[in-house]
């Protein structure tokens, strides 16, 4: 079974996504992959994400 295309993945969430959006979604997906590959993930393992939860005041 072939890998789902970007528009297939988007249609999982938004079934009404029109065909006309397919090429732009493909382009964005390729851009995202290219950006992801450029990230130095080896330097991230011990970095705390900029998300914290404060039990006194709710999510921040």
């Amino acid at each position: 079974m072939p890998d789902p295309t970007p528009i297939d993945r988007v249609r999982d969430r938004y079934p009404e996504t029109p065909d006309e959006d397919a090429s732009a979604l493909q382009e964005h997906a390729e851009h995202l992959v290219s950006l992801r590959r450029s990230v130095r993930t080896s330097q991230l393992q011990w970095v705390e994400p900029a998300l914290t939860f404060d039990p006194r005041g709710g999510a921040r």
Binding site: E48, A50, L51
Partner: peptide, 30 residues
């Protein structure tokens, strides 16, 4: 509108791992 619909659709593509890596990068940038 077509461009805003597309932008919202694009946000369905990143994974949860992408989002958390992005928040780690944010810590580094800060």
């Amino acid at each position: 509108g077509p461009d805003t619909r597309l932008l919202v659709e694009c946000g369905a593509l990143p994974s949860a791992v992408d989002y958390l890596h992005a928040q780690q990068i944010r810590s580094q940038v800060r």
